[in-house]
Write a protein that binds this DNA or RNA. Structure first.
Lengths: 237, 237
DNA sequence: GTAATAGTGTCTTTTAGACATTATATC
DNA sequence: GATATAATGTCTAAAAGACACTATTAC
């Protein structure tokens, strides 16, 4: 094995580009949706892709923004929303040579969740011809650019793995919300139907644990009894 | 927002360096241990650190090795073990500007588990003055270089989170193993003591599920009844 | 026999699935 | 009244904690 790690040699090695890509989810009604952009530039011009961009590095390859700052900046650029409106968590880093025809691009993928309440405010970033939510169950869901199908699959798996054991579902409901709305989020994410009575018992435990607190008013209904509404006690999460 | 994502401009942005760092765990007796190297070169010369190295990128910043190949190569270089002797999984990517005094270095951290059976074969890589296992509970555990304390903490959290729901513990026991040895691994990782009778019931379920199969022979004991030995049915994992 | 470790059985508590029942609303 | 949705209660099954008990070995 050659001593390739000595400081001087390393400094002259070819460097890859590093990007962040975002998998931003929301739930509308009973549908899990992801935000996609239609690429305005090559490669994959005109194809749908996950929003993303390059990490800013300072002059001489020193300093610049952190990975989390880069992801938060992209999230703000794509959605036009202020920081803190969404849940943001690092997902996985994809770096196969050849995953980007422009050269060696290593992508740190991030996973974001936001309430459909913000839906109308969505706008595309400067590199997008269009931006919109796509239902994962949509029969016309497009074939994504790059290795983005794998990023999306990884993100869905992460979401399904987290929703039962962490309070991420609260980022996907409006505020305030009803038990049935929270149930719909769980069902959209897991792709299964839950017994309303049993889900309600889970919900009751959240209230007993102080995770969910009563909100004023009732949810109006077209027909049937009006539902109580609740808010997430985020600090207890 | 400036249109910074156009293809031409991006190509001339300063690029970071990308490294892989490894958090390699094993369990000896009742102790969770991590493999550290003593740095032979600046920065942090003489300090203990996690093993790692730069990802190889081809000429002109095109091609090179995948991140997983880079991690597997480092693992083989540090341990001298053939591929497949260990569990290897991507952990998290750390990219704060300033985490490396040499400049902008983004590190894709990996998480590895191996049986203490291989212990005697460990050797350092070319960039290490020394390499050895350190018990996490060792009162003389050193202050690590770079942001490696955070990498280590993240890896321990990942291990603790996985051990109850995935068969990773089998990578930490010898083959074959006894129920008590598997229990010792769980206890070392979680830092708690389990009731032997209740752990044995979990173990019995693994046998019933075909995850663990009987191995020939018995484990010799200094005193007391000899324990049955078992092997992990990896394909069922 | 004692001491030590391997291994089983049982009681209780917690949680989830299945599903009957009551409550409040519109028509 | 009929129908639809909200909310509760109960039976059962699976899994974990507590802990008494039996089995096999060295001395």
């Amino acid at each position: 094995m050659e001593p390739i790690n000595s400081e001087e040699q390393v400094a002259h090695f070819p460097r890859p580009q590093v990007a962040v890509d975002l998998v931003i989810f929301t739930v509308v009604e009973t549908d899990l949706k992801v935000l996609l952009i239609e690429r305005a530039l090559p490669p994959f011009q005109g194809r749908w892709a996950l929003p993303g961009g390059f990490v800013r590095v300072g002059p001489g390859g020193i300093g610049g923004e952190s990975l989390e700052d880069a992801a938060a900046r992209e999230l703000a650029e794509e959605t036009g929303l202020p920081p803190g409106s969404a849940f943001l968590e690092q997902l996985y880093t994809f770096g196969d040579p050849g995953r980007d025809p422009r050269g060696r691009v290593i992508s740190v993928a991030w996973f974001a969740l936001m309430s459909a309440t913000w839906f109308p405010w969505i706008r595309g970033g400067s590199d997008a011809a269009a931006a919109r939510w796509w239902s994962l169950a949509d029969p016309e869901f497009p074939a994504l650019a790059f290795d983005h199908p794998i990023l999306l699959k990884t993100a869905v798996a992460r979401l399904r793995g987290k929703i039962d054991d962490s309070p991420v579902a609260f980022y996907l409901v409006p505020d305030p919300f009803t038990s049935a709305e929270l149930q719909a989020v769980h069902e959209a994410v897991k792709g299964v139907a839950y017994d309303p009575a049993n889900f309600r018992r889970r919900f009751r435990r959240m209230v007993e644990d102080g995770l969910v607190i009563a909100a004023p008013g009732k949810r109006a209904a077209v027909v049937g009894r009006r539902a109580a509404v609740w808010s997430w006690a985020k600090n207890r999460g």
